[in-house]
Computed example of a mutant assay.
Amino acid sequence: MRVKPVVPALHRWVASGRRRTESWAGSPRALDVLIALGCLGLMALDLPGLAAADNSLSGPAAAVVLALGCASLLVRRRLPWISYLAALLFIGWLHELTLVQFALYSVGRYRGRRAGILATVGYVGFALVMFAVPGWPEPQGQTLSGFLSLVVPIGVLASVVGIAAYRHDLVGELTARRAESAVLQAVQQERTSVARDVHDFVGRELTLLTVRSEVLSMRARETAYAKDFEELSDTARRAHLVLNDIIVQRGERASTPGVEGLPALAEESGRAGSPVRLAMDEDAHGLSPLRQAAVYRVVQECLTNAAKHAHGETIDVTIAAAGPQLRIAVSNALPVRTPGRAPVSAGSGTASMSERVRSLGGTLTATRSEDSYEVVATLPRG
């Protein structure tokens, strides 16, 4: 009987192999090749005595057969049942139980719990039938129950490890999908916020334009320009109506404050335990309302992130004009993280800030070092 009790370390070996091969080749195919070669190496240890103990295969012929069986592991991700059937063939023909460990792991890993259980039951039943066939190499001094105490745990353990890895992959994928969904939702919310700000700021200007053109139309009632002013007033009014139709308002909400709201925001952060050093050029007050709203949102999100990840640390906020660009820099030190007390965060704040800045033609970068975190955003001033 050829039994290699390698299943307890199989999952760890696969995980470490994945890390090495992905850094080497960047493809799961390299990991499959290494697993097939590893299985072949384990079975090759039996080549010298395989023909004499189990069947009439010569050494070279046995090597070819074992290599073909291990080659089935190359398609274990898409077709794990092929390696499973090859493993059953090896049990009945060569009395070899090494390949079935890899096959059961692959079925559980890539087809889930139900397929893993079905494959394990089929393996145990097939091994039991083979044990009852005359000529099966029963270990000396072992009864049927003793033999099954070795065969059954091999299959069950391999399948359980594969199913556990399958569930781990599902959890990881679900976590990634949730994070992606949170980022997309944050971006969509920021787009809605930008649209509402557009409605508030542009709508106000259109209202002023409408009123001013109506006043001018009344003043020029007896002149040749009266009709032109009336058309201008009607055009401004229609533009305002179109703006209301395109940008749907959902609930009552005030527009995003401008740079005049930053001192109050810094004071609020200080009361919460994270003091802020605010340095702002006077040129920032000359920005358009939408750009001022973007500055406010970037600083607001940075202060929120700092409160989560660096509570109690001083936050430096610098808003400076540099030629045609406005530069917003927010930085804070990072405290030593206490194990087991990671802050709750969806990780979508940076995407939200980036969407707001990008919509106005700017850029945003976030840089993390060992002891500090800095966000730098640039906006065109014009």
Rank of each mutant, 00 (worst) to 15 (best):
R2A: 11
V6P: 02
R20H: 08
S27T: 07
R29C: 05
G38K: 04
L42F: 04
P48A: 01
L57F: 07
A62E: 01
A63T: 08
V64K: 05
L66K: 05
A67C: 09
V75P: 05
A87R: 00
F90W: 03
I91Q: 13
I91R: 10
Q101S: 12
A103M: 05
R111D: 01
L118V: 15
G125R: 05
L128S: 15
M130K: 03
F131K: 07
G135E: 00
G135Y: 01
G146L: 08
L150G: 04
L157V: 12
L157N: 03
A158C: 02
V160E: 00
G162P: 05
A164H: 10
A164C: 08
D169K: 06
E173I: 13
A179N: 10
E180M: 10
S181G: 14
V198Y: 13
D200V: 15
F201Q: 12
E214C: 10
A220S: 13
A226H: 13
E230L: 14
D234Y: 10
T235S: 13
L243F: 01
G258C: 01
V259I: 09
E260C: 06
A266N: 03
G270C: 06
A272G: 12
G286L: 00
L287Q: 07
S288E: 11
P289F: 08
V295F: 11
E301M: 12
A307R: 15
K308G: 02
G312N: 03
A322E: 14
L334Q: 05
P343K: 09
S345G: 05
G347Q: 07
M353G: 01
S354Y: 04
S359H: 11
G361I: 04
R368T: 14
V375G: 00
V376P: 06
R381V: 14
G382N: 15
